[in-house]
Amino acid sequence: MTAAESLRPDLARELIARAAQSAARRAKRLRNQLDAVQLGQDRHADHADTKILRRILAEHDWPGHRLVGPEAARAAWSLALHADDDADFQRAATILLERAVQDGDARIQHWAQLYDRTLVNSGRPQEFGTQLLLAPTGIELCLVRAPDSLDQRRASVGLSPIAIALEKVRRRIAQDRQAGGSSTVVLAEVA
């Protein structure tokens, strides 16, 4: 299903556009390509994205596959995932996304990543090992509850074993650094 075939192609287009712009801003931030004014504008744009997504959630619940199509549903998830400055909103979005997953209208992997992000942002151990820190020395998995059963929990939501996922991230980071990427410490996700 494309944005044009969804029930609300207008929402689909807006979500996709906002998520693409947000991803471009994050890429520039990660590469330290923004001055202080641009960083302020960047934060303002992130807040605007959260405000728009908050309005969409209030009017439609989670914008899932049926309402906006898979690509726009992924865009909504990305915007919620990166709304780190609004923990209450992020937790509310996680609940709505979980309901959409239960209704077969969203991907469980998106819920697992957003759920982990809310846990990490509140200082608690994550469940599925999807959140990590990128540091100058490499990557660190954020604290995980019961690490011995992590791969079983990951499998229960359709995620690959943690060793495989971390190796993919390491390769992606190495390629980015070869291309001139930054070694700034940031929170990132691993699927």
Rank of each mutant, 00 (worst) to 15 (best):
Q152F: 06
A112H: 00
G180F: 09
A12S: 14
D84K: 00
A174P: 04
R43L: 15
R55T: 14
L114E: 00
G64Y: 04
T2A: 05
T184R: 15
E140A: 11
K168A: 13
P125V: 02
P147I: 09
L132M: 13
T94R: 11
L96H: 14
L53W: 01
D103R: 15
L34A: 04
Q126Y: 01
D49S: 06
F89T: 04
R18Q: 03
R13G: 08
L141D: 00
E14V: 13
A24W: 06
E189S: 13
R31Y: 06
R145F: 05
P70V: 08
Q175F: 10
E140W: 15
A112G: 06
S160I: 06
L15W: 05
A106R: 03
R18M: 03
S22M: 08
E127M: 13
E14K: 07
E71L: 11
A112W: 00
R55C: 07
L133G: 02
P125Y: 00
P147M: 05
L166Q: 12
A191C: 11
L34M: 10
A58Q: 15
W111L: 01
N121T: 05
A76P: 02
H44F: 08
S160R: 14
E127A: 11
R43Y: 06
A23G: 12
V185P: 04
L57D: 04
A100V: 06
S156R: 05
L159N: 08
T94M: 14
H110D: 14
L79I: 15
